[in-house]
């Protein structure tokens, strides 16, 4: 969900673009982190861990912790908390370490 009314901040309406998550089309704001767009669409599971396949989500949101690694445009281990969203991106929930080729 996005914040509409806030006592201090204003969030002007911005250009929306579409991208896909596991083949499903989602809308987000161009340039915001992919993770923000996913959260706005209520998607919180970003990957499954390498050993026990546990669901993992966003933790630090500033590129420190590597909890949010996803496969973006076939590139694995992208920190989606700091990767800007562009139209047409192909985002996939990452399984384990991801596949390089």
């Amino acid at each position: 969900m996005r914040i509409v009314n806030h006592p201090i901040l204003t969030f002007p309406k911005q250009d929306m673009v579409t991208f896909t998550l596991n083949g499903q089309t989602i809308e987000g704001v161009a340039g915001e982190p992919i993770a923000a767009a996913l959260h706005a669409a209520d998607v919180k599971v970003l990957r499954h861990s390498h050993g026990r396949h546990r669901p993992r989500g966003l933790f630090c949101a500033i590129g420190n912790c590597s909890s949010c690694l996803m496969t973006v445009d076939k590139i694995p281990n992208v920190r989606v908390c700091i990767e800007p969203l562009r139209a047409g991106m192909v985002v996939e929930t990452q399984e384990g370490k991801g596949k390089i080729v």
Partner: peptide
């Protein structure tokens, strides 16, 4: 489960709850 700073970033920078 988030760090407090992550929640601030989502809300106050990106406007997402």
């Amino acid at each position: 489960i988030y760090g407090a700073g992550a929640v601030q970033t989502l809300m106050n920078v990106h406007g997402v709850i």
